[in-house]
Amino acid sequence: MKATDKQFKNLMKSYQPEKAPANFTMDVMNRLYAETSKISEYKPVLNKWVLRVFAVLVGSFITYAMFATGGTAAGESLPGAEQVKSLVSQVDLSGVAVAGHKMAGLFGSLPPVVVAIFLSATFLLLLDQFFLKRKKQVADQ
C-alpha cells in the first residue's frame, strides 16, 4: 500500500460516520416478524363463495346420480319437477343403498382420471376447511 493510502487510512480512523436511529434494530425486527407471520398465516385455498358453488355442484351431481341414472334411458333429458317429487317420496333406506350402487355405476362410467381429480379436489377442500376450523379453535383458546 502506498504511503498516501496508509496515511489516509490512519486519518480515517478519526472519521465518525452517521449512526442509524436508536430504534432502528427494533423497527427492522418488527418488520421481519410481521413478514414472517404473514407467510405462516394459513388462508383457505378457496373463499366461501367458491366453496358454496362447489357444494351446489357436488349436491347436483349426487342428486343426478340418485334420481336420473339407471331409471331413465341413455340420452333422455332430466326428469321434471313432478317426477323428482314423486321420486323423493319413494326414497327409503333401501333406496340409499340403491343410490350408492347407482353412484358407483356413474363413477365407473367416467374416465378414472376425472374421478381421481374430482375425489382429490373434494378431499383437499375438506382438508382445507379442517385446517381453517382448527386455526379458529386455536385462536379462540
Binding site: P17, A20, V28, M29
Partner: peptide, 18 residues
Amino acid sequence: NVAAFSYLVEKYRDMVYG
C-alpha cells in the same frame, strides 16, 4: 431462528444507514 438476525442488524446498521 428469526431473532438471530437482530445480531446482524445491530452489527451492520450504522454502516448500511451511513
